Simulated scan of single mutants.
Amino acid sequence: MKIAVVMPFRPQPSREYAHDVSVAHWRRALPAIAVTDIDTDDEPFNPAACRNEGVRRAARSGADVVVVADADTLVEECPLWQAIRGAAASGLVHLPYTEYRSLGADGTAQHRAGRALRDCTAVTVHGACSGVYVTTPATWWSHGGQDERFRGWGFEDAAWEVAHTTLLGAPPVRHEGRAYALHHSPAVKEGPQYEANAALCHRYLEAAEDPAALRALVRERDTVPSPPRL
């Protein structure tokens, strides 16, 4: 089985530490696998577009399974391998955690000083459905990937989970374990684009019980011209 790790990332001073720790983490967990940073050059940075592009590049490389990992998120090895094996066969996306811990500034400083992740101060984010996705390219595209109209930060993961659950008939498969999100300066989560993202996510939620409406919403985005990339 050929595995690829792709990581949406745009260099920023506050994010360099989390990125470097994440890359080192994946090199330990999957030592024979290259970690590829992905940036589509959209303005603002577009995580959904980067995830889609990462899956495309992995598919072109011949990968059977793709780990799509945020550049600040670490997961435990046992659930990771369970997710890889499961994603290869199930036709569903797998999430290698059941508990998502946000370390914050204090917890990240503790980890930086040598404390084990499990012992660092953290806040559990209930309902988290992002951070690390494990999928085959075919599964990712079977429910449309992620909607690139979610520009900037916010809501693309929630809309993706709705599309997955509605169009594939089941939520993403979770594996018992923990994910850990390292601290960095937060993205701006306000303003017209953030409000547009919230409104688009609301449309996904409204279509959640109607596969035909959800498919139409997914197809609709393909008819909307993308803003120019700078």
Rank of each mutant, 00 (worst) to 15 (best):
P228T: 15
Q82I: 02
V67A: 01
L92K: 01
D64P: 02
F150G: 06
D41R: 15
A116N: 08
S22E: 00
P8G: 05
V125A: 15
R219E: 15
H25N: 10
R51Y: 10
V75C: 14
V123Q: 15
M7Q: 10
E220W: 09
T98A: 01
G86L: 01
D37Q: 12
I33R: 12
D64T: 14
A48Q: 03
P96V: 04
V35N: 06
Y204K: 00
E77L: 15
V162F: 01
V132P: 07
A69V: 02
P13S: 13
L214C: 14
W140N: 12
V21T: 12
G91D: 03
R10G: 00
R51E: 08
E206M: 12
R112M: 12
A181F: 00
A109G: 12
T121E: 14
L182I: 10
L230Y: 07
R149K: 05
R203T: 07
T36W: 09
D70C: 06
V6S: 03
C50E: 08
H183F: 14
E53S: 12
F150I: 00
A4W: 11
N46C: 15
A216K: 12
T165P: 06
A207W: 01
V65R: 03
H143R: 13
H184I: 11
W153L: 04
E209Y: 01
H143Q: 10
Y133C: 04
V132W: 01
R10S: 06
G62C: 11
D42F: 13
R215M: 08
D119H: 14
A69N: 13
A113P: 04
T135E: 05
V67N: 02
L80C: 03
D64M: 04
T124I: 15
L200N: 04
G62Y: 12
L167K: 12
G114D: 09
L30H: 09
P227E: 13
F9T: 02
R221Y: 00
V66G: 05
L182K: 10
A181C: 14
I3A: 06
V75Q: 08
A24R: 15
R203I: 02
L74K: 07
E220G: 11
H184A: 14
A212W: 02
P44E: 03
F45M: 03
T40R: 12
R28W: 11
R221M: 13
D42P: 05
P96Q: 01
